[in-house]
Each structure stands twice: as structure tokens, then as C-alpha cells.
């Protein structure tokens, strides 16, 4: 065995030891969070990918920063102690989901400009609120994620969100399928497509808030869309794509967390580089195979 391989093996052992070490509870939390969150990411990410609304999800995630900024300002600056960042994030996400959704339905020609504006303004508001808040804040943990931030409460939040998403999707699967594949036809079958579209965006918003804890605002879109994009290579049906996405997402988050712990890298970027690389390699390989078949 080479020294490199020995080092790797030791790093692996250390990682699994760290996982069960009570002093390193944050790591066990992060792994649990990654696995549980993958259920929400895989399902919602599939909808975001097939409905092609990753741009809307991007605007929502950046507005979340505005909410976090507002919450910090109210909590620390104004002394409203119950208004914590996660509440601000959830509020901002849901409000921006509804605004962005209505814009995408009604503002036909200017849609991308308006959504781009909301995207930037949401982010800028967050910074301005934080400027006005006394004290120092480590912004990079919100922007790029930080597994140290994950708490017991986040785990409960993920479990609730998973149950909500699985329940809603099982109940309304055919309606969501219709809205994503052919909105007009679904409307003609008597389904309230606007409601289900906005509902989907609100679920996306809640999932984005969750994702921000793991990979941060800037990298959210990648983790939401890359696993479904890979799943899309192999899935023939919508539910298959969801299932594959969930599995891939969990695999990427766990592997990424393991690597980031062993090599002392930031967790969010490690996960994103990992799944982005796998996606691009598979994409190139598929194109290559396609050419060979020709």
C-alpha cells in the first residue's frame, strides 16, 4: 500500500470515528440532515428541473438572504428576540415564491428582467439590513453553507418538510404531472393550474430555505438541479426520476461531507464540485456514446 492510500484509509476511519464521537455531534447532525433533506431536494428538484424554473428558484434563494438580513436586524438591532433568521428566511422565501410565480404567469415579455431584478434586490436588501445591524456576522456561512450551523431544530424542520412534501406529492401527483408537462391541457381538464403552480413554488421555497443551511444561497440551485439532471438521463417516468434524484442527492451530500471533513474543505462547495463534476462527466460520456451509436 502506498502512503497516499494509507493516509486515505486513515482519513476514512477517522471520519467514521468522528461520526460516532459525542463531541462531534455536529457531524452526525450534518449527515442526518443531508440524508433527510435529500428526500425533499430530490422530489422538488425534479419538478424544478422538468418545469424549467431553476431561474425562479434562484430568485427565491437570493431573496432568502433579504429575509435573513431583516431577521438579524430585527432580532439583534431592534431586540425582537423571537424573530430569528430561519423565520425571516421562511417568510422571505414564501413571499418571493408567490411574487415570482405571479410575475411568471402574468408578465409575459418582461418576465426574466423582473425576476432578475427581484433576485438582485432581495440579496441587496439582506446586505443593507446587516449593515444596519450592530455586531459582526459571518456572511460566508449563509452564502456557501456551514454544517456547523445545523441544529437539532433544523432536523425537526427537515422531517416536517419531508412529510409535507411526500404527502402532497402522493396526493396531487397527477395534477403536478399535468401542470409540468402541459399546463394548458391540464387547465382544460378543470384543474386549477395557477394554484398548483404556486403551490409548487412555495414548496420549492421551503426546500430552498433548507438547502441554504447545507450548501448556502449561492450554491442552492446546483444541488437542486444537478441530481435530477443526472436522474433524467436514466429515468423513463416522473416518479423514477424523483427516486433516482433522492438517492443521488443523498450520495452526493454524504460523500461530499465525508471529503470536506477529511480534507478540511468547506462542505457546500465540496458537495457542489462533486456533483457538478459527475454530471459533466456523465453528460460528456453520454454524448460520446451517442456519437458511437451513430
Amino acid at each position: 500500500m502506498t502512503t497516499g492510500a494509507v493516509k486515505k484509509a486513515i482519513a476514512m476511519i477517522e471520519f467514521f470515528q468522528a461520526l460516532v464521537d459525542p463531541d462531534n455531534r455536529f457531524l452526525a447532525y450534518a449527515m442526518a440532515m443531508g440524508g433527510l433533506a435529500s428526500i425533499a431536494f430530490g422530489i422538488i428538484g425534479t419538478f424544478v428541473t422538468i418545469k424549467r424554473i431553476s431561474y425562479l428558484a434562484g430568485a427565491i434563494s437570493h431573496s432568502v438572504f433579504g429575509g435573513i438580513g431583516l431577521a438579524l436586524y430585527l432580532q439583534v438591532g431592534m431586540g425582537i428576540s423571537w424573530f430569528d433568521p430561519i423565520l425571516g428566511a421562511v417568510l422571505a422565501a414564501v413571499v418571493s415564491a408567490l411574487v415570482v410565480g405571479l410575475v411568471s404567469i402574468h408578465a409575459k415579455e418582461r418576465e426574466d428582467t423582473i425576476i432578475g431584478t427581484l433576485w438582485a434586490v432581495g440579496m441587496a436588501c439582506g446586505i443593507l439590513f446587516i449593515d444596519r445591524t450592530p455586531g459582526y456576522f459571518n456572511l460566508s456561512s449563509y452564502l456557501f453553507g456551514d454544517i456547523l450551523l445545523i441544529s437539532h431544530r433544523d432536523l425537526i424542520f427537515v422531517i416536517c418538510l419531508d412529510m409535507l412534501i411526500v404527502g402532497v406529492v402522493v396526493l396531487f401527483f397527477n395534477r403536478f404531472f399535468g401542470v409540468c408537462f402541459d399546463n394548458e391541457f391540464t387547465l382544460l381538464r378543470g384543474i386549477n393550474t395557477t394554484f398548483f403552480y404556486l403551490f409548487l413554488l412555495v414548496l420549492t421555497a421551503l426546500t430552498v430555505v433548507l438547502l441554504v443551511r447545507i450548501v448556502g444561497i449561492v450554491l442552492v440551485i446546483a444541488l437542486l438541479t444537478i441530481p435530477p439532471a443526472i436522474a433524467g438521463f436514466y429515468a423513463r417516468r416522473l416518479w423514477e426520476m424523483m427516486l433516482y434524484s433522492v438517492i443521488l442527492c443523498a450520495a452526493f451530500t454524504w460523500t461530499g461531507l465525508g471529503i470536506s471533513y477529511s480534507l478540511s474543505f468547506s462542505s457546500g462547495p465540496t458537495i457542489i464540485v462533486l456533483c457538478g463534476t459527475v454530471y459533466l462527466v456523465l453528460l460528456a460520456a453520454n454524448k460520446f456514446i451517442f456519437h458511437l451509436k451513430k
Partner: peptide, 15 residues
């Protein structure tokens, strides 16, 4: 590129 079989698509007519 939507992941759906022929039956999935046709079933939409029964929504």
C-alpha cells in the same frame, strides 16, 4: 425530454 411513458401522457386526458 419530459420523463413520461405514452400511457402517462394519455392518462392526462382522464384528469
Amino acid at each position: 425530454t419530459f420523463p413520461a411513458t405514452v400511457l402517462d401522457v394519455v392518462l392526462m386526458g382522464r384528469l
